[in-house]
Amino acid sequence: MKKRMVIIGATSGIGEQLARLAIRNGYIVGGTGRRVARLKALKDELGDNFYTHQMDVTLFDEAKTALHNLIDRMGGMDIIVLNAGISNHPASSIVAMEQKVIDVNVSGFVQLFGEAFQYFRKQGHGQIVGISSIAGLFGSSRAAPYSASKAFISTYMQAYRQRCNRIKEDIPVTDIVAGFIKSEMTEGKRGMFWVAETDKAVEQILHAIEKRKPVAYITRRWRLVAWLIHLMPDRLIDRLW
């Protein structure tokens, strides 16, 4: 029986390429996003095994309804990939911009994580995948809300992983710790290195999902960077970022 994967945030970058790869590998895939035209174009490309639903993760009640509607049309859900996220947002002030990042990356994530967790508990199995970032390992003066939001995601997923172990639920929680990957979000940004092609990154992401890994660094070399960051004293990190 084909596995059913829902990708929250499937209209660009990692989410879009993951949808393509999953379809090629025999999954039934549901994709969400705010941009209807992009969802329609992806549906036209991927065909009958790809289902779509418009979703704004900051409209919490509507997003929950959209998720369950999509699950019903797909005939179920085995895996959810929580990929929706932003690094900045046009706004009238820094405070408003930072609040928008938190609304999307933290509040939107938590709402849909909770819906998926309860769905999988009732079903008896399922997998939750969250896209965090190497940026979550340290505070960044240039992207304070983004780095903080990704740290939250990793810690939140770790706590739920422990909870599932304690209550013996068959719900693996996979933290995809992404380094620099070519996408609209990283386009034009300075100071990046080891920038991975989207296809290569997504292949490693799908492999980590299928192996039900608790944590996966994408691409794998970023594990070394994470190790070095953990060894650095705070006074050095504060000078670097």
Rank of each mutant, 00 (worst) to 15 (best):
Y156N: 08
H53V: 05
I181G: 00
L59E: 04
I28T: 08
M55Y: 02
F117R: 12
H89A: 04
L231P: 00
S87A: 08
I71N: 05
I102A: 13
I167M: 07
Q17R: 12
R4K: 15
M232T: 12
T186L: 10
K211L: 10
S147Q: 06
V29H: 04
Y146R: 04
A143C: 04
A196R: 00
L21T: 03
R38E: 15
Q17K: 13
D61S: 10
D175E: 10
G26M: 03
L21H: 12
I128V: 15
G191C: 09
K200A: 11
I80C: 11
K2F: 13
I134N: 01
G9E: 03
V57H: 01
D103Q: 05
Y51P: 07
M192R: 04
I176E: 07
S87C: 14
N83Q: 14
S92I: 10
I8A: 02
T32V: 10
F152W: 04
K40I: 12
G139R: 02
V106C: 07
R73C: 07
T155I: 14
L228R: 04
T219M: 09
R38P: 01
T32I: 11
Q162S: 14
W194P: 00
T65R: 06
I229Q: 07
A159T: 15
Y160W: 12
K168T: 12
I209H: 02
V177C: 06
I28F: 15
G130Q: 01
Q127Y: 03
V81I: 09
R166T: 12
W241R: 11
D103A: 06
S183D: 06
Y119I: 14
E210N: 06
I134F: 09
V110I: 12
T198F: 01
D175Y: 05
E184T: 15
T186S: 06
Y27K: 03
T174I: 09
A178F: 00
Q54C: 07
V29S: 10
R221P: 00
T186D: 08
V215A: 14
P145T: 10
Q162Y: 08
D56K: 07
A22D: 09
E169S: 15
V104H: 04
A226W: 02
E197P: 01
R4Q: 13
K64P: 02
K122L: 10
A196I: 05
A96N: 02
T174A: 03
S12G: 15
R166M: 09
D78L: 13
I128N: 02
N88W: 11
A37T: 07
T65N: 13
D103N: 06
D44Q: 07
G124P: 09
P172I: 08
V95M: 13
A151F: 10
G15Y: 01
E197L: 15
E184L: 02
R239E: 08
M77C: 15
S133P: 00
V106Y: 03
K189I: 03
Y27S: 08
Y119A: 03
C164T: 09
I131N: 11
R20V: 10
I209A: 09
L206V: 10
R220Q: 14
T65W: 15
D61L: 04
I171Y: 02
K2A: 13
K168E: 12
D72R: 07
A226F: 04
Y27M: 14
D44P: 05
I94Q: 07
R190D: 08
L39T: 07
G85K: 01
F120S: 11
D175Q: 05
T198E: 02
Q204Y: 11
